[in-house]
Design a binder for these strands. Structure first.
Lengths: 289, 289
DNA sequence: AGGTGTTGTACCGCATAGAGGGACGACCGC
DNA sequence: GCGGTCGTCCCTCTATGCGGTACAACACCT
């Protein structure tokens, strides 16, 4: 058999773009997901040609993908033959968070915290190397579907991200951190694996994380994890505000309130001990196996 | 060449499930979408075996799909190896409506209507044979992401659906109606193509549509379309309430308010006439080409 | 008008991606 | 222990879907 050599040689030439290489490949599907991502990043709807260009794809290939995606309503086309994300994604996405159902259970506590500190409060979960925003309350009103909700930011430069990361199993941290592609958003961004690990140590010691203008100058955030019964973080809550209001002087006071809130939430989520330990974290997006 | 016969014979045996048959096929992708749908319909996360069972799939095939979907974060797996929709869908879905950006522009009017009639008000758009709920206001508070938002109902038994359908181009109506699979939800549900067409005639005459307990007994809704400059419906607004409050006596009065609201919205959306007529409807999910 | 660049759509043959059979190892409860 | 289930992995063979290419419909220039 020539099989043994086969696998190692086959791939390199075939695809110009560096595809995710894993044991399980489904090129058509992967390409389709990329299309969705490209469309997601674009402000305006894109034409077939533009999509081909951005993805180095042949017309026919892209065309086929688009047709199928359109049939599935994952994308839709405007009258002038451009494509954008379809509303089916909205349906599916909402089902996704509905199934998790974290937001509804957290909301009451969450809201009280916002009233209390009179700053914007976020709820988020880990999603591979990003934190996804699930909810947001501003001191007065709940901002629904504000631009931020549903979007995501990197783990390493958000207080929620660091708070959750710090309280993950060793291997999970390792896996996540090693897939991070660091980008410097501000002079204060933690841009290396080492700095991040060091920082996580601090977070673990204090119990909360600070994003000190690491993603945007002038904005400081304090985040703390929500735990499941095994003390792994399954979500996080953060308070964000201008550096003028969240000053080094009052950080500790605010942090205490965030921590209290998170403790209440963790407790209320109940997570009564069940038979085995694999009730673990129904909320956390596990990274790899 | 044997090609000519080939196409017509090839399909019937290969797949047990009736797949959508169209010129462009990407089985891997289509299967993946089905997986997403299956997961979406399930309350609890599903195991590989369960998914195989529900979809008549071979273990390996399903497994491969799942692995790829998981890598793409379109699904995620719980610690006990079950699968559910992933939060990436949430991100993408939110991007989708953000790109449409209908909700934000409509909200002010929308809200006033709710205050005015003191009933629940919905905003929705057409999505093939369904109407997708984009927003909802209850008389007092805005219900964000209530269970309904993001979900969908059939066109033919909702006031918004019928309101939008009535004001579509002839061919669009034809295409949509002929893909409807009628289900009787209540004794009053319109269950045939003929009845629906007849009804649409009425809707066109009156300018608004009524859902008279056609999807749920005890609930009556009044919906009217939002137009683009070509007078095609791109969205709809509806008022829903118990039959005890929305009585045959006051339907007309409420309908007038809905109509007024929709007229204001249509006007405010501006849609200033641009060069060609293909500015048409950037919001409507066009059905087919 | 007539060329000359775009678009998007359609077809087709060949290489390869991926379906499905099946082995394997982990875990369950009898 | 054994029989059952589960998920993972691997290999073979063929139908799939990739990418060339041809074409049709426009838009834009001289």
């Amino acid at each position: 058999m020539t099989a043994s050599l086969n696998t190692s040689i086959a791939t390199p030439l075939s695809e110009a773009l560096a595809k995710t290489d894993g044991p399980y490949q489904l090129h058509g599907l992967e390409r389709a997901v990329s299309v969705l991502e490209v469309l997601s990043e674009s402000e305006a709807p894109l034409s077939l040609a533009e999509i081909c260009h951005r993805m180095n794809l042949h017309k026919s290939t892209a065309h086929r993908s688009l047709m199928v995606l359109e049939r599935s309503a994952l994308i839709e086309r405007t009258p002038e033959n451009r494509f954008r994300l379809g509303l089916k994604l909205y349906e599916l996405g909402n089902r996704a968070v509905e199934q998790i159902d974290l937001r509804a259970r957290v909301y009451p506590f969450f809201r009280r915290l916002a009233m209390d500190v009179r700053e914007t409060v976020h709820l988020g979960v880990l999603q591979k190397t990003s934190v996804v925003y699930l909810d947001k309350v501003e001191p007065n009103r709940r901002i629904c579907m504000s631009s931020k909700i549903g979007s995501s930011n990197p783990v390493y430069c958000t207080s929620m991200g660091k708070a959750m990361l710090a309280f993950q199993p060793e291997e999970t941290i390792e896996k996540i951190v090693s897939s991070i592609r660091f980008t410097r958003y501000t002079p204060k961004t933690l841009c290396s694996r080492e700095k991040l690990f060091e920082h996580l140590e601090t977070v673990r010691r204090r119990g909360y994380a600070i994003d000190d203008e690491e993603i945007e100058l002038g904005v400081r955030c304090i985040g703390a994890p929500i735990f499941n019964e095994d003390r792994w973080a399954i979500a996080a809550v953060s308070v964000s505000g201008p550096t003028s209001r969240i000053t080094p002087q009052n950080v500790r006071a605010i942090a205490q309130r965030v921590l209290t809130c998170c403790r209440e939430i963790s407790a209320s989520l109940g997570m009564r001990a069940k038979k085995k330990s694999h009730v673990a974290s129904p909320f956390l997006t596990h990274y790899g196996s």
